[in-house]
């Protein structure tokens, strides 16, 4: 008799199981992804943060993806060995490292779409290097829409200044031969205001903290929610356990918050250096 799992895997490792008990109904996932994309496009267009990618932006994304590959296949697994299994739900260095690297990339590129593009490039690369395109294009869609879109929404919301790095006027005198990098004026208000909340936001350490929180919380939620709640059963018939999903969200929240904030500071530093 043909093993039932054989049928479940279907083409390219996709079981296509949409009737697992507890699974998030696919129209909800589809509608969320569609609405989130429309919303992203709407606010990006409204506040003028939609701008065309330049070649150098694709270069930066490629460089970031290369770091993510090295992290995921070399550094991340090394660090995860130090994490006791009991704590693995709380801290996964593999995904946290990727999160931080992408924060750096979005800090440098600062254009709506870079979050989704970054995840897409990484996903294809990871297939080339290790996963052999199994489960594609589902993983691609999952990573772009579950994670990448969060970063893009933040870029759109901050009008292209995800970590407060702006383009205020400055004098470029440093030393002989030195040229101040563009955008090196430091942190400016995300809203451009000079008083009240604007003045609060203009404090150098405030925006990276907010950015880390705003992106860290959805990141912690998106993984357990979308993967365990929808994509795992869709891909290979994974069991949907809502208690585990909720626990997963709570457990990974602190590490994503901490790494989100640290990563935002690093991203602010790198984007300041590179201009």
């Amino acid at each position: 008799m043909l093993n039932i799992d054989m049928i479940k895997m279907g083409f390219n490792g996709i079981a296509g199981n949409l009737s697992e008990p507890g699974i998030i109904p696919w129209p909800i996932v589809a509608i969320y992804f569609a609405l989130a994309s429309l919303f992203l496009f709407y606010i990006a267009r409204k506040n003028g943060s939609l701008s065309r990618f330049k070649t150098v932006d694709y270069v930066y994304v490629g460089i970031g993806a290369a770091f993510m590959i090295v992290w995921n296949f070399f550094v991340g697994p090394f660090l995860d060995k130090f994490v006791p299994s009991g704590a693995a739900s709380f801290i996964g260095f593999g995904s946290l490292g990727q999160f931080v690297i992408l924060l750096i990339v979005i800090g440098v590129v600062r254009k709506v779409g870079v979050g989704m593009l970054g995840w897409a490039i990484y996903d294809i690369l990871a297939d080339i290097y290790s996963y052999g395109f199994g489960g594609e294009p589902i993983y691609l869609i999952y990573k772009m829409f579950a994670f990448g879109i969060i970063m893009d929404l933040w870029i759109a919301a901050t009008r292209g200044k995800p970590f407060g790095i702006g383009s205020g006027k400055t004098s470029n005198a440093t030393d002989a031969g030195a040229k101040a990098p563009a955008g090196s004026s430091g942190f400016v208000s995300a809203s451009g205001a000079s008083a009240g909340i604007g003045s609060f936001l203009s404090k150098p350490k405030v925006i990276p903290v907010i950015a880390g929180i705003v992106m860290g919380i959805p990141y912690a939620i998106a993984g357990p929610l979308f993967f365990t709640g929808f994509f795992a059963p869709l891909l290979y018939g994974g069991i949907v356990d809502w208690q585990a999903i909720i626990f997963g969200m709570y457990a990974s929240l602190p590490s994503f918050l901490i790494f989100g904030i640290i990563g935002s500071f690093i991203a602010a530093r790198v984007s300041k250096v590179l201009g």
Binding site: T170, S171, N172, A182
Partner: peptide, 10 residues
């Protein structure tokens, strides 16, 4: 002048 700079580079 580069973006963010008030000085003319050229």
């Amino acid at each position: 002048a580069y973006l963010g700079s008030s000085d003319k580079s050229l």
